[in-house]
Design a protein around this nucleic acid. Structure first.
Lengths: 134, 134
DNA sequence: GTAAGTAGCCACCTTTTGGTAAGTTGACCA
DNA sequence: TGGTCAACTTACCAAAAGGTGGCTACTTAC
């Protein structure tokens, strides 16, 4: 059987540890740098326009932003609404599915913010150890 | 001021939405495909050897596995122990810091497993829509 | 004496990713 | 007449990621 118990009481037909597993690909996608930030922004600010996102995500290029938004839309996480007035106006917001990702993602971003100092310290210590050892 | 409230009651000196933010880099690192899987494996199985990990992470190359483990070690998330017997034996396990990542990461992998079907359906629908629209 | 096993490293090469910059659409404004 | 705005799209190019295969050291087992 290919079903795997990841946590007691939870079964799924997918196995993250198998190559080509769609869940693994999905994980890779939502773990993507810009995806995380876009989803975070839309989660916090709600419906936003393209330029708003571009301005709030420091360092993102238009190309990357478009690409990320398209992927998220295709995955059913983000809803894209085009207003046919001039100039064109486009809104992005989380779908219901996208909303379910907020908690897990926030847990991760929170962890990252809270432990950055420790990690930076660990890196410094590691670099020092390597310098010594070598 | 550069401090930012991410969640009520939580402050940090970092801002994920600023380019060059170390937390953003860190997030990118732990959101990495192989990092997630290695941390997951070590979280579930506990202390493991190099070849055990290689065998359990279907599709990983030795190069990638080494690279990922080194990065996690340098970040203070994984402890690497070399036993100087012959043939060499090396163990990897989560550090205390690494343990604190288990919950957030599990939340994300769980989400991924549970919603893969919905996302696949959304992708199919999106592809159909594009085909129609174009 | 030689093959096997562990835990890698290194050089080479291909694929993918991502940045920059320019073009597009279509109404409206000076 | 031509410049502007929003939200892209496209082409081109550089950088980075990642795969492959060969090499290492050391000892035990055949």
């Amino acid at each position: 059987m290919s079903a795997v118990e990841t946590v007691i009481g939870t079964t799924s037909s997918w196995d993250l540890y198998e190559r080509g597993c769609p869940s693994r690909d999905l994980l890779d996608r939502i773990g993507d740098k810009w995806s995380i930030l876009v989803l975070g922004e839309l989660g916090e600010h709600g419906r936003s326009r393209f330029t708003e996102l571009r301005n709030r995500l420091s360092g993102v290029s238009e190309k990357m932003l478009t690409q990320t938004l398209r992927a998220l839309e295709s995955d059913g996480l983000v809803l894209r609404t085009v207003h046919a007035r001039v100039p064109v106006r486009v809104d992005y917001e989380l779908t219901a599915l996208g909303q379910t990702l907020r908690a897990p993602l926030r847990a991760l971003t929170e962890w990252s913010l809270q432990h950055t100092d420790e990690v930076l310290a660990a890196r410094a210590a590691y670099a020092a150890r390597v310098e010594q050892g070598a």
